[in-house]
Design a protein around this nucleic acid. Sequence first.
RNA 1: AGUGCGAUGGUGUAACGGUAGCAUCACAGACUCUGACUCUGUUUGUCUAGGUUCGAAUCCUAGUCGCACUACCA
Length: 555
Amino acid sequence: MSEEKSLNFLEEIIENDIAAGKNNGRVHTRFPPEPNGYLHIGHATSICLNFGLAKKYNGKCNLRFDDTNPVTEETEYVESIKNDIRWLGFEWDGEYYASDYFDKLYDFAVVLIKKGLAYVDDSTAEQIAATKGSFEKPGQESPYRNRSVEENLQLFAEMKAGKYNDGEKTLRAKIDMAHPNLLLRDPLMYRIKHEHHHRTGDTWCIYPMYDYAHGQSDSIEEITHSICTLEFIHHRPLYNWFIEQLGIFPSHQYEFARRNLTYTVMSKRKLLQLVNDKHVSGWDDPRMPTVSGMRRRGYPAAALRQFSDTVGIAKRENIVDVGLLEFCVREHLNKTSNRVMAVLDPVKLVITNYPAGQEDIFEAENNPEDPNGGARPIPFSSELWIEREDFMENPPKKFFRLAVGNMVRLKSAYIVKCAGFKKDDAGNITEVHCSYLPESRSGNDTSGLVVKGTIHWVSVAHARTAEVRLYDRLFKVEDPSNEDGDFKDYINPDSLSVLPSVYIEPELAKAKPGDQVQFMRKGYFAVDTDSTENKLVFNRTVTLKDAWAKEVKKG
RNA sequence: AGUGCGAUGGUGUAACGGUAGCAUCACAGACUCUGACUCUGUUUGUCUAGGUUCGAAUCCUAGUCGCACUACCA
């Protein structure tokens, strides 16, 4: 209340409607997916918008499957869509299907025929296209346009009864073949498809077109605010025309600009290509911008909701930096993920003054952001794995990690001082040698020393292993759809790298699919569903911000 | 070409005739047993040209640029 948050243009419209007493102040939205594919982040935004608006204004939001094309639609998609919406944290009020309304829609069509506003056309698809006209030229009226009401009624009934083959006849609205808006040049209302429908089976062989079905479905459900993306703006006059001619509940359509994200593609067609051409492992590949992919990658639903909120909505073209999404993901994971230690690219560190074979157990805080996060035991011994990049033979200035003569803190354990290292014949460093300072024990440090660097480690004798999958952006360019040539030419060949055997602290071996942790200093990781009893698989959700990497880049 | 929609820092979004703000990014610093987190500070913007007005991102006019629309898809 104290802080005034500005409204987006839809909230403004809704608040004005409420203030004006429109629909008695009732707000009812709907999310209308077509069950022919998986939901992606663009849908997630629409879900947050529609369900969010309903929640904010004490209204309702229906889930309605727009299943008017039996050729492409399947029940399998219905289930995945419902699952994704629930995972995102929303529950719909009514669950409906456009196919629920096939009878009503048919009756509405009869009404329009009787009013002389619809007719059965024998033209072929090619003829209809050819007589449609163009942006500058008016179309031509169909020779079947002026059939009598009785004839239209009979032919339409015969279409429904299955007397005709696919494409032989259509039902068209009789509007205006010279209208500047091509959608109003006698648009198709029904086409014949002798196809099995996922819900109505073989009951129907005529199916309504989107423009005829969508608005009437909204109206039947008494949707007050029907929100869709900008490309439907030209459809609005038609949406209104049907509702007005039928005299049914006046739902209204509002359009907003769809969200685009950098370094990915969003169209179902393109995503399907990535799957079919095996550029990714499936719709739920963690590199995909699908809801299922992001879930598997470890993006929290709350982060997706926050992203949607932060980005906001408007009516202008946009492409949102994926960095903003990653920021939201980190913000949530930072609060909820336990810190653990894992060494991705190991080199051995030998503590020369620590007795070989001796072991010690340290208590490590699970999450400094969570006072109730508890602690876990971490075994320590004279030989540890550390990251190869945490030692340098010839360190640059401001390198706070290990180098001969340098001291660092081993996280949750001792301060060590580097005395030397070993190399193999090829010049690769094979061992780093250090001595530890017993008085610097974590939690009981009397050394008085302050060291600038802290590094993570895993005891060699106690280490377990896991597979780690590192993901990077799927494309090399910000907007692959907007580049010359095929978008697939811009796929990043290094978007996935697999580390088959990473050393992890023993406690981590208990992790279960879906668990999320921070590998200290390396990033946030989620246990993948490919994990088995014997082999854990971690997906890197997102890296940590890395100030040192930037420093190095600057040179 | 016609119609429609749009144009505010690198990105996204506010300001509804009266101080161009917020988030992210970038940069600088503080803090730090994660070069993380957190905190502080800084740089960067109203498409152009006219007009109305005491005052314009906002209103008017003309241009420029971008996007959408000519599927028996949604």
